[in-house]
Design a binder for these strands. Structure first.
Length: 572
RNA sequence: GCGCCUGUAGCUCAGUGGAUAGAGCGCUCGCCUCCGGAGCGAGAGGCCGCAGGUUCGAAUCCUGCCAGGCGCACCA
């Protein structure tokens, strides 16, 4: 945590470190809310030392109705059965205790409904909480992962035999946003793309290019898009080149195209892992994986093939690793790849897969355990499909039918920011219907612009105020007798919920929550902007406080958008 | 047949045990002497797929059913 700037500046004014230390006293100093939570927990413990810690989960949440206070807890409802008292009676006792524990921080604590405790926070608490956001600096919202792990996120991993389409784009946007989120939460994250450059499909690409270069029909099951013709023209002597060499050239160029498309989309990888590396060397990584499985006693020979006993780990049936023909199955490559990942020493492996691979989840988990891994160290996240819709008709993406929208086209039609928002605003386990014509028409209605606009508007206001005034306001101490307008209070609370939103998004692997949060935050800011004049408002302390609110909102919006890979423009 | 995902406002979707279920878009009606109107306010619009169950409390958990998507290879 960054030091209080007053201390660094050697200022004579009393620094806010005192109140901050108090606010941060809870075990997870990610937000001033930690203190409230800790107080509730302490009061609950005092009431029932025996009522098992952690046998229930008490919550501190923002009630929907304004009349129910700023925050509320269900602690009394959860404690009542253990204490053998009515929830309301428990709530009364908890409330009394908390009123004294939180002296000066809350205006009142009320018992309501079946036994909820509602907290009405003091304006002073809210005003100082805003300062906390600013003082946190780059640490705002960062950290909190428990425990922090070394995580490998493998995503996209599209076959390099065709262009990236919007389904891959969804996977890319999701994997990228998830990686950013995990990193901000304190994990050490590496991103990897697995390139299927080995086997039948890769060879079909080579054959297709060669056929094209010779002016022949594409082979059975081959590829025939425009890109095949481009490759045939690009690669010198494609018509007569050795097929293996041509395949290699073709794959290399397709990977370059894929990389370029993804880069344009704002997605970068730490490593591109090529499948052919699993099959080279002695012993190859595949053979090595077979050895490991044999040592673990999980493989056997039958009917001339090598089998893996995945049924030991809940799979429906055992799976073939090496066919009776001597060829390795695709599954064998995947196992070797996962073993290779394990040996690199990650605490957790995450694979982001398309919905068409979900049948593979059970057997991969089984294989992972067969290798000696713990099942919960491997996460296979399934992305549901993007369906294309045109004139009301729905169709799956298919190159043959022409129902195909590439990532490049999507970016060209609606831009990176709108595209990423569109793909990330929905949960990964719901299918998306994309009508590209409609998306183009409506792209200016994309909520992403509303969020960006709020950011640009704040930037404009701060520019108008001038750097000197803004810097001074950022460091100023807010007087304890502040009186906040309702929309100011709402904005502060929305800002403070940022770390919790991130924690929730991380645990659920749900970056779409950040999009929802960003929109709500922009709305809270816009309401504040509507109700509260900032520039030139009297007295000066009020202007100062509101500048702080603007800064906090600007920073939090920017950070939310950054997690989604969306730009936060200073003007638009 | 078996498995996974989904079913919430006209449309696209949030909301995985709490109080009167939300947002965006669309629709209706208001609002541009005011820090950026890509905006603001008000309103209409819901058997939360259906039926049971669990409990103080269920859109949320359990069971069954219905509908849609996707899988169930010694294919890749």
């Amino acid at each position: 945590m960054r030091l209080c700037p007053h201390a660094a500046a050697g200022g004579v004014r009393r620094c806010q470190a005192g109140i901050l230390r108090k606010l941060m006293s809870a075990e997870a100093p990610t937000s001033p809310l930690s203190e409230l939570r800790a107080a509730v927990r302490a009061a609950a413990a005092a009431l029932s030392s025996s009522a098992g810690e952690g046998s229930f989960r008490l919550t501190l949440e923002r009630p929907k109705k304004a009349g129910f206070g700023d925050y509320s807890t269900n602690a009394a409802l959860l404690l009542a059965p253990a204490l053998g008292q009515s929830p309301r009676a428990v709530a009364e006792r908890l409330g009394e205790d908390l009123t004294s524990r939180l002296d000066g921080l809350v205006d009142s604590v009320e018992v309501a409904g079946p036994g909820f405790l509602n907290f009405f926070l003091s304006d002073a608490w809210l005003a100082r909480a805003t300062s906390f956001v600013l003082l946190a600096g780059d640490d705002w919202g960062a950290g909190g992962a428990e425990p922090a792990e070394r995580i490998l996120v493998e995503f996209v991993s599209a076959n390099p035999t065709g262009p990236m389409h919007v389904g891959h784009a969804r996977n890319a946007a999701y994997g990228d946003a998830l990686s950013r989120l995990l990193a901000l939460r304190g994990h050490s994250v590496e991103r990897e793309f697995y390139v299927n450059d080995f086997g039948t499909q890769a060879r079909k690409l080579g054959e297709s290019i060669q056929a094209r270069a010779r002016g022949q029909q594409a082979p059975e099951g081959g590829y025939q898009g425009e890109y095949v013709a481009e490759l045939a023209a690009e690669i010198p002597r494609a018509a007569e080149m050795d097929l293996d060499q041509l395949t290699g050239e073709g794959i290399e160029r397709m990977v370059a195209r894929t990389r370029a498309s993804l880069e344009k989309f704002g997605v970068a990888f730490d490593r591109w892992f090529f499948e052919h590396k699993l099959h080279s060397g002695t012993p190859s990584l595949v053979e090595h994986a077979f050895d490991v499985l044999e040592e673990q006693g999980r493989s056997y020979r039958s009917e001339g093939a090598l089998w893996l006993r995945t049924s030991d780990f809940g799979d429906d049936k055992d799976r073939v690793l090496e066919r009776s023909s001597g060829d390795h199955t695709y599954f064998a490559s995947d196992i070797a790849y996962h073993q290779e990942k394990r040996e690199r020493g990650f605490d957790r492996l995450i694979d982001v897969l398309g919905a068409d691979h979900h049948g593979y989840v059970g057997r991969m988990h089984a294989a992972f355990q067969a290798l000696g891994g713990e099942s919960d160290r491997l996460e296979l996240l399934i992305m549901q499909f993007v369906h294309l819709v045109s004139r009301g008709e729905r169709s799956s993406m298919s190159k043959r039918s022409g129902h195909f929208v590439t990532l490049d086209e999507l970016i060209e039609e609606i831009g990176v920011d709108a595209a990423r928002w569109y793909l990330l605003a929905r949960s990964h386990d719901t299918t998306i219907d994309l009508d590209i014509d409609l998306a183009r028409e409506q792209s200016s209605d994309n909520p992403v612009y509303y969020v960006q606009y709020a950011h640009a508007r704040i930037s404009s206001m701060l520019d108008r105020l001038g750097e000197q005034r803004v810097t001074q306001a950022a460091q100023a101490e807010v007087p304890g007798d502040a009186r906040l307008e309702p929309s100011e209070r709402e904005l502060v609370k929305k800002l403070l919920s940022f770390p919790d939103e991130l924690a929730e998004a991380e645990v659920r692997r749900a970056p779409h929550r950040i999009a929802a949060y960003a929109l709500e935050l922009a709305q809270a800011f816009t309401a504040f902007y509507r109700d509260c004049k900032v520039i030139g408002v009297e007295p000066e302390e009020v202007e100062t406080r509101r500048i702080q609110l603007c800064l906090g909102a600007q920073k939090t919006i920017a950070r939310s958008l950054e997690l989604l890979g969306v730009s936060a423009p200073r003007s638009m």
